[in-house]
């Protein structure tokens, strides 16, 4: 088992303010590791920044000193053994959990004190590890719920079926179909989401998240339960989504071929701390990562 000394990362220069329980106020700091952002995003402000993020559940520190700076069109991955705190980080970034310490800046704006809905409107969308679709609604309706915040008709306009209602419904029907086209799912539009096969449900969840017009997309195990051919297709599609929508994507995944194949930057999490961060090649050869996955015996 790794002790605190071994888990301390090189990437954090200053000491984490883990001693003070108060959340410190927003400060736009240039991240210590700008070289980790893909070259094309270098000049721009990172779309998502987290500084010294941490959360305690009672006495247990689930996540500690988590730092990230994501380029605007970066695809990065978060890996780590089970229970390392990966999903907890997603929950922190989307404000499902209130961080005990640390700051999250989305496009330069602090998300502290915002509700889950507000954070989504600010530009973070996510999928879930255990699929959470609107099972009794159709595939198209699922996507349309995601579009909800882009739609503007007043309740009475909708209820009395004024012309504006029809115009908007038609417009967003087309948009939904375009979106479903990414995964060639137009034919399933009127199917109930709960009746879809597992892989299609995962894809639909990604589309629903995309419909909310995010700047950052958080994918929690997008390839879980997919066969190698589907995983391959998903990798291409995720890159296509990044290129078409110009968004940053952070994903959690256990499938190493997937992570190594698609991510430009990978962070390895163990016991709630980032133990290594780098390109796929660096991560594969990092002794600390090998230790976290295989135990001390694995290291020569």
């Amino acid at each position: 088992m790794s002790s605190d000394e071994t888990t301390k990362t090189e990437t954090t220069v200053e000491t984490a303010p883990s001693a003070s329980p108060k959340r410190h106020r927003p400060v736009l700091v240039q991240m210590e590791t700008p070289n980790l952002v893909p070259e094309r995003d270098l000049g721009k402000m990172p779309v998502l920044q987290a500084e010294h993020l941490g959360i305690d559940f009672g006495g247990l520190t689930a996540v500690d000193d988590f730092n990230i700076a994501m380029g605007r069109t970066e695809i990065s991955g978060l890996i780590g053994p089970n229970g390392a705190g990966k999903t907890t980080i997603f929950n922190l970034l989307t404000n499902v959990y209130k961080p005990t310490r640390g700051t999250i800046l989305l496009d330069g704006y602090d998300t502290a004190g915002k509700s889950v809905v507000e954070v989504n409107k600010m530009g973070i969308a996510r999928t879930f590890q255990n699929i959470r679709l609107f099972n009794k609604m159709t595939v198209e309706e699922n996507v349309l719920v995601g579009f909800g915040n882009s739609m503007s008709t007043h309740l009475l306009t909708d209820v009395f079926r004024l012309p504006k209602h029809w115009k908007q419904e038609a417009e967003f029907h087309d948009k939904a179909m375009d979106l479903l086209g990414i995964f060639n799912m137009q034919g399933l539009a009127q199917e109930r989401a709960g009746n879809l096969p597992y892989g299609a449900q995962r894809r639909l969840e990604i589309l629903r998240a995309l419909a909310t017009n995010p700047k950052v997309l958080l994918l929690d195990e997008p390839a879980a339960g997919m066969n190698p051919a589907e995983t391959e297709e998903l990798m291409e599609n995720i890159e296509k989504i990044r290129d078409d929508f110009q968004i940053a994507i952070l994903l959690i995944e256990h499938d190493m071929n997937f992570v190594m194949g698609i991510c430009e930057v990978i962070g390895v999490l163990d016991y709630g701390r980032i133990i290594a961060k780098g390109t796929p090649e660096e991560i594969q050869n990092d002794p600390k990562v090998i230790e976290a996955y295989l135990g001390k015996q694995g290291v020569k």
């Binding site: 989504n120 959470r132 009794k136 719920v145 995601g146 629903r208």
Partner: peptide
């Protein structure tokens, strides 16, 4: 649709921006 989405999955509805 927003109302139905709350019935089907409140957590997901929130994360999709449904107030």
């Amino acid at each position: 649709r927003a109302i139905l989405s709350i019935r089907d999955n409140e957590i997901a509805a929130e994360s999709c921006g449904v107030n």
